[in-house]
């Protein structure tokens, strides 16, 4: 499969995530759009890792070129899980204080 198709798919998902972040007001939906953008990048990293493997496997059939890209995706997932737990805790705390998750009410950090 040509690598351009994967780039365009990831670009479409990333742009939809950007549009969601810019247009929605619910803080949780904004957070979910950020997750969508992270996943688009993950898909692109895996596609690029298979692209570099395809370039290296021509010379050496036992190569493991491209493994690093997939491990990066693994680490991105780990960091995203930690980020989600802390971010949702912050959203719950803000809801407890303001009784709303509307980001227009969250324009100041103090009080």
């Amino acid at each position: 499969m040509p690598i351009e198709y994967y780039i365009f798919l990831s670009l479409a998902l990333f742009s939809i995530g950007i549009v969601g972040v810019l247009t929605r007001r619910n803080a949780i939906v904004v957070f979910m759009c950020i997750e969508l953008m992270l996943n688009a990048v993950n898909l692109l990293l895996v596609a690029f890792s298979k692209m570099y493997y395809a370039m290296a496997v021509v010379n050496n059939s036992a190569t493991t070129f491209g493994t690093d890209g997939q491990l990066f995706v693994f680490f991105i997932m780990v960091v995203a899980a930690a980020e989600v737990s802390v971010g949702l805790a912050i959203i719950v705390m803000m809801y407890r204080n303001t009784h709303s998750v509307d980001i227009n009410f969250l324009n100041r950090l103090k009080n």
Binding site: I3, I7, V46, K50, V57, T67, Q70
Partner: peptide, 19 residues
């Protein structure tokens, strides 16, 4: 990225042993 392809079925770098 001109004329580059991502290998679909071939290659075992994504299997759990190698990773």
């Amino acid at each position: 990225i001109h004329n580059k392809v991502a290998l679909l079925k071939d290659g075992n770098i994504g299997l759990i042993g190698n990773l």
